[in-house]
Nucleic acid binder design. Structure first.
Length: 858
RNA sequence: GGGCGUUUAGCUCAGCUGGGAGAGCAUCUGCUUGACGUGCAGAAGGUCAUAGGUUCGAUCCCUAUAGCGCCCACCA
C-alpha cells in the first residue's frame, strides 16, 4: 500500500476539517425515532460574558469523551449545547464597555441597553461556538438552547406563573444581600464569606438621665449607628436588668435609644450589650420584628450614607465609618479599638463587601420544593453521584436552605411577569404581556439560575409531555459539572424537575474538580497563570489538550495542569502516529486483512490479546464509572508497552522473515489491534484517531461507524511463553547495560529447557537481544538465570555473567520464600484466609522454590 | 462553630474488592537498532504524614493527632 501518512504528526493537518466532517455527516445529531437506547447530556451552559477558559475545556472534553464512548457503544446520544445569559455578569460586562465610551446604561435606556447586550451576546456566542469547534465537541448543534431564547422564555413564564399561583413565589420585605457596586440584590449563595481583618470599636453610650453613667457597646460597623433603634441585652443578664424603660444616647447622632431585652443576645459576647440596626442586619431585623420597632435605612443603594447620617450624607460608608469614629473619639466616647479577624460577605460577582439592606424582593419558597427532592432521593430513581460523597453535600444543602431571593435590579434577564394595575392597584401574574396603558410591569428581572435551572426541561421540549425528546431523553443520563456549582445549578435543576415532572432531572451526576496551575494555585487573571485552551490547541493540537485534560483528572478532586501534561500527551500521540505509520507501511496495496479469529495465532499474539482483553475490560469498566483518567492510563500503557514496545518489535522479526503464513497472521493482528486501539482512543483524541483510521484498509466512512471493542470471547490464557520472552529480553539488555556492553554488540546466549519451546523463542531472542551465537544446552553451570522453565546465560568473551547477579537473585528468592513460608505456616492464615488466596500463595511458593532449587541444586 | 477533602519517588499525581508500591516529568548510564531523538534500552530513587486499633495480613478499614486545602454557618 502506498503510504500516505506523513512522517511527522502535524496536528494542523490532522485536525483540519474533522469537526465539519462529523457535524455534516450527522454524527452529532440525536435521533429520537431511532430504536437505539437514548443517552442524554447537556453541557453546563457557559456565560455569554466572553471566552471559554480551561475549566470549560475540561468540562466540555469530559462530556464529549462520554458522548463519543456511548455513541460507539451503540447509544443514540443526545448531547445538547447551550449558553447562559448570565444576568449580572453580562450586564456588568456590557456596562463596562459602555463606560469606556463614556456612557451609562441610563443614558441608553432599558430598550437600547438590551439591544446592546444582545449584540454582545451574539458576538460572544459566536466565539464560544468557535471554541467548541476547536475543542471538537460533538454536540447536537441543531438543538442548541440559550437561557433567553423563546423556548426558555416560555418555560420561565409558565414556571413562574405556576409557582406564583401555588404560593411558592412571593414578595417579601426583609434583609437581603445588596451589591453596592452592581446595585442589585444577590441570593445567599452569591455571597462569599471571607475572613478579613477588622476593628471592633467600643463606644460609650451615656444614659439620658445621668450623662456621667454609661454603658459600653462594641461594633464593627459604626456607620450603621445612624440606623440604630435600641440597645439590646439578654433578659437573664442581671447587669442590665435595671435598665428597663431607660434610654441611652447614641454617640453617633445624639438620639435616644431605649433598652430592650431579647434572648438573641449572648451575655458573654462583647460587653453583653448590643446595638440594634434593623435595616442593616438580619438578626437585628428579627429582633425589631419581635419588638415591633422602626427600621430606618441609613444608606443609599450605592453604598453612600443618606440623610439620616446628617453631616456624613453622601459619603461612602467606609469613609463615614472612619470620620465618625474620629469624632466620637474626640468626644471622649471611644473606649478602645480591638483588632479582630472576622468573616465578611463579599459579592461573588463584583467582590465588593455586601451591604445587608432592608428591601422588597421576590422569593421562592424553598421548603416544599426541597422536600420533594428529598423524598425522591429516598426512592428508586435516586441520583447517583460520582464520587458518592457529593450526594451528602447536595442533600445537606437542600435540607436547610433558606428561601431563594430571585429578583435582581438589572435590565438583562427575564423580567418578572407581575403587573400592577395603574388605576386599581390590582396585582396579577400573567404569562401574556399586559398593555402598558393599564398595567405596570415589575421592574426587576429574575436570577439567571432561575432559567438555567430549567434547562433539562427546556431542551427536552417540556412542557409538551408527548414530545419525543421529552419521552426519550428526560431525565438526562448524566450531569457532568464542577463541584462549585452544585448549589447554584444542580440543586435548582433538581427541585424544578421534581416539582414540575415528579422526576429528578438526571440519573447520574459526575463531579469533577477545578483546573489549577502546576503549583496547585487557582488560575486567575491577576496571577496570569491561566492556560488558554486555544493557545494550547494551536501549539500542541486539540487531541493533546483533550488527552492531557482527561488523564490528569480524578473525579471530585482539583487537578494541577500545565504545559508538561500537554507535552506528555503530545509525545504519546506522536507515538501512536508513528506506530500506525509503521504498521501501514507493511500493508500491501489493496490489502485485505483476515479475520483474526480464523487465524492460527502464536504465543506472541496470545500474549498480546490477553493484554488487550484486560485493557478493554479495564477501560470499559472505568468509562462506566466516569473514571476517564484511569481509563486513559490503561489505554496508554497498552499502546505504549504492549503494542509498541513488545508486539511491534516482535512482529518485525516475522515481517522480515520468510514465513508467509506468519506474515499474514502478524499483519492481520497488527491491523485488528490497531483498529481497536483507535476506537478506544477516539473519545479522548478524536482527530488523530479518525485521521489514522482513514488510512486503514477496509475502513468505513468514520470511526463513528465502528463499535466499541468487546473482550475477545475465546478465552485466551495468559501466555507464559510470551511473558517469558519479554522477561528474558529484558534480562539480556540488563546484562549488557551492567557489563558496559553496547546494546548493538553481539553476545553469546545459552538457553536450557524444553527444546521445542526454545526453538519458538529463538528467532525473537536472537534479534531482540542481538545474539551472535544461540546455544541450546543442558549445562549444569551455575551462572544460569532461570525464567520458569528456561535457564538463560549471557556471555561475551571474558565478560561472563557475574556471580553477583545470580547471588542477588538468590537473595531475592530467599526473601520471597521466607515471606511465603511465614504466611503458609501461620495456622491462622490457613484457617481464616480465603481459599483462593491460600492457593495463590502456595503456587507462588512453589514457583519460587522451583527457581531457587535450580540455583542451589547441583 | 459544624462538615468534607487531602498527605504515596526530587516534582505533578495514579493506586479497583485489604493479599508483594506505580506512571509521566526530572536525574544518572548507554545507544546514528530501517515507525518514532517528540526516540530506544537500562538504572537509581519510597518508614505510603504520625500514633493507636481491627485483621491471619493494612498504603487501603476504624479512632485520634498534625500539616495543607475547601464548603457551610446571622454571633454584634
Amino acid at each position: 500500500m502506498e503510504l500516505k501518512m506523513e512522517k511527522n504528526y502535524d496536528h494542523f493537518k490532522v485536525e483540519e476539517g474533522k469537526f465539519d466532517f462529523w457535524n455534516e455527516s450527522g454524527y452529532f445529531k440525536a435521533n429520537p425515532s431511532s430504536s437505539n437506547k437514548g443517552f442524554s447530556m447537556i453541557i453546563p451552559p457557559p456565560n455569554v460574558t466572553g471566552v471559554l477558559h480551561i475549566g470549560h475545556a475540561l468540562d466540555a472534553t469530559l462530556h464529549d469523551i462520554i458522548g463519543r464512548y456511548k455513541k460507539l457503544s451503540g447509544y443514540d446520544v443526545c448531547f445538547v449545547p447551550g449558553t447562559d445569559h448570565a444576568g449580572i455578569a453580562t450586564q456588568a460586562r456590557v456596562e463596562k464597555n459602555l463606560r469606556e465610551k463614556g456612557i451609562s446604561r441610563y443614558d441608553l435606556g432599558r430598550e437600547k441597553f438590551l439591544e446592546e447586550t444582545y449584540k454582545w451576546t451574539y458576538q460572544s456566542q459566536k466565539t464560544i461556538h468557535e471554541q467548541w469547534k476547536a475543542l471538537a465537541i460533538g454536540m447536537d448543534y441543531s438543538r442548541e438552547f440559550f437561557t433567553m431564547n423563546e423556548q426558555t422564555n416560555k418555560a420561565v413564564l409558565k414556571v413562574f406563573k405556576q409557582l406564583y399561583d401555588e404560593g411558592l413565589i412571593y414578595k417579601g420585605r426583609r434583609i437581603i444581600n445588596w451589591d453596592v457596586t452592581l446595585q442589585t440584590a444577590l441570593s445567599d449563595i452569591e455571597v462569599e464569606h471571607e475572613d478579613i481583618p477588622g476593628i471592633f470599636y467600643y463606644f460609650k453610650y451615656r444614659l439620658v438621665d445621668d450623662k456621667d453613667k454609661y454603658f459600653v457597646v462594641a461594633t464593627t460597623r459604626p456607620e450603621t449607628m445612624f440606623g440604630d433603634v435600641c440597645l439590646v441585652y439578654n433578659p437573664k443578664d442581671e447587669r442590665f436588668a435595671s435598665l428597663e424603660g431607660k434610654y441611652a444616647i447614641n454617640p453617633a447622632n445624639g438620639e435616644k435609644l431605649p433598652f430592650i431585652a431579647d434572648y438573641y443576645v449572648d451575655k458573654d459576647f462583647g460587653t453583653g450589650l448590643m446595638k440594634c440596626t434593623p435595616a442593616h442586619d438580619p438578626n437585628d431585623f428579627a429582633i425589631a420584628k419581635r419588638h415591633n420597632l422602626e427600621m430606618p435605612i441609613c444608606m443609599n443603594l450605592d453604598g453612600t450614607m443618606n440623610e439620616l447620617a446628617g453631616e456624613y450624607k453622601g459619603l461612602d460608608r467606609f469613609i463615614c465609618r472612619d470620620k465618625l469614629v474620629e469624632r466620637i473619639k474626640e468626644n471622649g466616647d471611644l473606649v478602645k479599638e480591638e483588632k479582630i479577624v472576622h468573616s465578611v460577605g463579599h459579592s461573588s460577582r463584583s467582590h465588593t463587601i455586601v451591604e445587608p439592606t432592608l428591601s422588597d424582593q421576590w422569593y421562592v419558597k424553598m421548603e416544599p420544593l426541597a422536600k420533594k427532592v428529598l423524598e425522591l432521593e429516598k426512592g428508586e430513581q435516586r441520583i447517583k453521584y460520582f464520587p458518592s460523597r457529593f450526594e451528602k453535600v447536595f442533600l445537606n444543602w437542600l435540607k436547610d436552605t433558606q428561601d431563594w431571593c430571585i429578583s435582581r435590579q438589572l435590565w438583562w434577564g427575564h423580567r418578572i411577569p407581575v403587573y400592577t394595575n395603574k388605576k386599581t392597584g390590582e396585582v396579577v401574574c400573567s404569562i401574556e404581556q399586559l398593555p402598558e396603558s393599564e398595567w405596570e410591569q415589575d421592574n426587576d428581572v429574575l436570577d439567571t439560575w432561575f432559567s438555567s435551572g430549567l434547562s433539562p426541561l427546556v431542551l427536552t421540549n417540556w412542557p409538551n409531555l408527548e414530545d419525543p425528546y421529552f419521552k426519550k431523553y428526560f431525565p438526562l443520563d448524566v450531569m457532568i459539572t464542577g463541584y462549585d456549582i452544585i448549589f447554584f445549578w444542580v440543586a435548582r435543576m433538581a427541585f424544578d424537575s421534581a416539582h414540575f415532572t415528579g422526576k429528578l432531572p438526571f440519573k447520574n451526576v459526575f463531579i469533577h474538580g477545578l483546573v489549577r496551575d502546576e503549583l496547585g494555585r487557582k488560575m486567575s487573571k491577576s496571577l496570569g497563570n491561566g492556560v488558554d485552551p486555544l493557545k494550547v490547541i494551536d501549539e500542541f493540537g486539540v487531541d493533546s489538550l483533550r488527552y492531557a485534560l482527561a488523564t490528569s483528572t480524578t473525579p471530585g478532586l482539583d487537578m494541577s495542569f500545565g504545559t508538561s501534561n500537554i507535552k506528555e500527551a503530545h509525545v504519546f500521540l506522536n507515538k501512536v502516529w508513528n506506530a500506525s505509520r509503521f504498521v501501514l507501511m507493511y500493508f500491501p496495496e489493496n490489502y485485505q486483512p483476515k479475520d483474526v479469529s480464523e487465524l492460527k495465532l502464536s504465543f506472541i499474539e496470545e500474549y498480546l490479546y490477553s493484554h488487550l482483553n484486560e485493557t478493554i475490560k479495564n477501560v470499559t469498566k472505568n468509562m462506566e464509572k466516569y473514571e476517564v483518567g484511569q481509563a486513559g492510563q490503561y489505554l496508554y500503557s497498552f499502546i505504549y508497552d504492549i503494542y509498541c514496545s513488545n508486539y511491534i518489535e516482535q512482529a518485525k522479526i516475522d515481517l522480515n522473515g520468510n514465513d508467509e503464513n506468519r506474515k499474514e497472521v502478524v499483519l492481520s493482528v497488527l491491523y485488528d489491534v490497531l483498529k481497536k486501539v483507535l476506537i478506544m482512543l477516539f473519545p479522548f483524541s478524536p482527530c488523530i484517531s479518525e485521521e489514522i483510521y482513514s488510512f486503514l484498509p477496509m475502513h468505513k466512512k468514520s470511526l463513528y461507524e465502528e463499535s466499541y471493542p468487546l473482550p475477545v470471547k475465546k478465552s485466551l490464557k495468559k501466555s507464559e511463553l510470551g511473558e517469558e520472552l519479554v522477561n528474558i529480553v529484558k534480562y539480556i539488555r540488563q546484562f549488557k547495560a551492567e557489563n558496559k556492553i553496547s546494546p548493538s554488540s553481539k553476545i553469546n546466549l545459552f538457553v536450557k529447557g524444553e527444546e521445542k519451546e526454545i526453538n519458538l523463542l529463538k528467532p525473537y531472542l536472537i534479534k531482540l537481544g542481538n545474539i551472535d551465537k544461540f546455544n541450546i544446552t543442558s549445562s549444569e553451570d551455575e551462572s544460569f538465570r532461570f525464567f520458569s522453565e528456561f535457564g538463560v546465560k549471557c556471555e561475551k568473551e571474558e565478560v561472563a555473567v557475574s556471580p553477583e547477579v545470580i547471588k542477588k537473585r538468590i537473595e531475592e528468592l530467599e526473601g520471597e520464600l521466607n515471606r511465603s513460608k511465614k504466611m503458609l505456616s501461620n495456622p491462622n492464615f490457613l484457617a481464616k484466609a480465603p481459599k483462593e488466596k491460600i492457593e495463590q500463595e502456595k503456587q507462588k511458593f512453589a514457583k519460587y522454590q522451583a527457581e531457587y532449587d535450580k540455583y542451589t541444586k547441583k
